[in-house]
Design a protein around this nucleic acid. Structure first.
Lengths: 329, 329
DNA sequence: CTGAAAGCGCTTACAG
DNA sequence: CTGAAAGCGCTTACAG
């Protein structure tokens, strides 16, 4: 220890009071009447020694820290997750909580809770419903996102709705044969399942054939092969729902190699509305999910659980999903 | 408390041993000789009660946790940061450390250290050199990235080199008038300064005029205006170094509106080699930084500080910076 | 209005 | 080979 830790004792000694008084003053403990003079002396001493209470000791004593633990799934973090993390963190920090992000890393929820005693947990798709349920009797609020329904979670990001929106748009534009451009990234599987289900549902409702599903790698050559595959069929597809904007980019790159142009030869709809979508040529029609609302909503849910009756507005449970029509449809 | 915490005492009671024995067994404490039978009983009891030691108590007692704290700057997290976080985390986790990410959030390093007692800190551009220096006498290793040199940091991401690489390529292609397409995102300022300095240096070395700097917003219309601005000058630029691939996309979108094509009318070089760069049309020439190596290197540095003499390979201090020539130059 | 004391759950010298 | 005891730095009834 180059520099020994400054403790509440040190502050007490310097201020000429007891350790408890230091604690009362610094935490503004209710029901304690402390003279203004003492209060000032303590504040001053703490300042002078630049005292910072030990989170470990505090957590040990209180049984809980003031940290909200955000658990990430063990998959690469995408843009959507980053946005959620950003607004979620901002909301929570604005209310005095410290936010720590950790990957799940194969651990159990109960294990994580036992070891790090957060005030609350936000699950960003890391745990199964069963695990969440088994942790329900622990007294730490757990709030999370679910992809399509699921009671244990509070925020829903309706992947089905996203897929539906894509398909409905194409159908409204007169397309009768749809294709689905799938991502080849294994970590996309979870989201993709819901989106594709939404596309399928719309086709069924309109008595259209099931969409042809083709994998579209993020390489122009490979994408070109995928594109020609879905055009060289008895009933060629005329509209494509892409898993996301990246895949939509790949489809467009493949089309270019095949001398096809959107929307004339093939209409394309993406998902995410990434900044580059509007800079593509042609600019990509896409379904945008208001991801920032997911983070804020999640944050609000945590706060409501932590401070019930604080009069915080109830958050919406679903972010808005909006179609942004541009030039590829 | 719905469920009271399971403590080492509970395990001890169940195994019929003392609390210390539980600690010795579970931590595999060296220099303690414990009978195989006792050992087994303890393990079993811990298992049966699904005992997880309290991180708070452990940290309080030991003065340090086994968590490596990664501090992020108070700016939106970009792709590069996400990649670094990923490989850094993987490296550290592989060696048994828990990794927690937190935004700096205006706090001081000393404050963060006092309150959360991590074993080590990784600074992802959150602190100034002065702050880092003032924390040097604390006995927690702090490892970080620096943009261009800086002794207090271990990994360097040479922004100047990135800019140089862009400019050198254009000069080699015969361009004599370069322009710099700047990002309008305020949080890009830090990185941009170094990159632009690199471009300037190359121009100076080749006795070329200083590059014209134009802001390029991520909107086709606005970008078109920026493009025409740098072409309608006495000495029109023929090559553009873009701050990053997104800006390069914007430049290309602007050019398209102006009926210009790359590289004929204007050559464009980006930075980052994002997946979409090769899917653009024309595919974007760009400078790729091996960000994953930054994370891994950072991780290795932390491990070397934490376990000196463990024979871990010394990491490289600079990631490779490579030019990827595609169709825009 | 303020202080002495217990105890949160661990680890680790120290005795036996 | 194993256990009793101290103490990490806090908070919070409880006395005064």
């Amino acid at each position: 220890m180059a520099v020994p830790r400054v403790t509440a004792r040190d502050v007490a000694r310097r201020a000429g009071v007891s350790q408890s008084t230091v604690s009362y003053v610094l935490n503004n403990t209710a029901g304690q009447t402390i003279s203004a003079a003492t209060r000032a002396r303590v504040q001053e001493a703490a300042e002078a020694l630049s005292y910072t209470p030990s989170a470990a000791a505090r957590a040990l004593r209180a049984g809980t820290s003031d940290t909200v633990l955000v658990v990430l799934a063990d998959v690469p973090v995408g843009v959507a997750a980053v946005t959620i993390m950003g607004t979620l963190g901002a909301t929570l920090r604005a209310h005095g909580y410290v936010v720590a992000y950790q990957r799940r890393d194969g651990r159990h929820l109960a294990e994580m809770l036992q070891s790090s005693t957060p005030v609350a947990v936000v699950d960003l798709g890391a745990f199964t419903a069963a695990e969440l349920a088994s942790a329900a009797d622990l007294d730490v609020p757990v709030v999370g996102v679910s992809l399509d329904g699921g009671d244990s979670h509070l925020m829903r990001v309706p992947q089905r709705t996203i897929g539906r929106r894509q398909a409905e748009h194409l159908v409204a534009r007169g397309h009768r044969r749809l294709a689905y451009a799938a991502s080849t990234d294994p970590s996309a599987a979870g989201l993709m399942q819901g989106r594709l289900a939404g596309v399928r549902a719309v086709c069924a409702e309109h008595a259209l054939p099931d969409p042809v599903v083709v994998d579209v790698p993020l390489h122009a050559d490979a994408a070109a092969r995928s594109v020609s595959r879905l055009r060289n069929r008895a009933a060629a597809a005329t509209g494509v729902c892409a898993y996301d904007d990246e895949v939509a980019f790949a489809v467009l790159a493949g089309m270019r190699l095949e001398q096809l142009t959107a929307p004339r030869d093939l209409a394309v709809v993406g998902v995410d509305d990434v900044p580059l979508a509007r800079l593509a040529s042609p600019a990509i029609t896409t379904v945008g999910v208001q991801t920032s609302a997911v983070g804020a909503g999640l944050g609000r849910h945590v706060l409501n659980r932590l401070q019930p009756g604080a009069g915080l507005a109830e958050p919406d449970d679903e972010p808005s999903v909006t179609l942004v029509v541009r030039a590829t449809t």
